[in-house]
Amino acid sequence: MPHPIVSAALFVMWLLLNESIAPGPMLVGAVLAVLGGWALALLKPGRTRLRRLGVALRLAGVVVADLVRSNIAVTQVILHRRRDRRAGFLRIHLTLRNPQALAVLACILTATPGTAWVEYDTEDGWLLLHVLDLIDEASWVSIVKDRYERPLMEIFQ
């Protein structure tokens, strides 16, 4: 099996869809899992070694907490119009270069309300973000770099 994690995820997904652990769905799920792993291997996504499961779990916790916090912050922005609110683009220079890690970072930043990944320059590593409430540029840069980029670099090294 070329991609054990992807295969296992496909297997679990099939069982969830069927809502049973009878032998029939298990067999079909196993076939699906093996075929899915092979299909992914044919696409050659490049192998990534995931390390530091503890760091990954802590990052997931941080992301969930930030999700709740930024939901509340954006709710306040929408419901109370503040005069001094300024939305705008923000440039951040990233040291992270692993494509998979960048994809995870992009998903985190876009899924969190208030920040949206707009463009990334692959040559120099400049990231263009759009931020809904751009009061303090430095604090946004430090949030992206310290809270997300550093753990991601540890996970995908």
Partner: peptide, 21 residues
């Protein structure tokens, strides 16, 4: 927010409220 925010890039943040929490 999709109604009230002014520009397209600001409105881009609005659907994420529904799709996250």
């Amino acid at each position: 927010g999709l109604l009230r925010l002014g520009s397209f890039y600001e409105r881009l943040h609005a659907p994420t409220l529904g799709t996250s929490l």
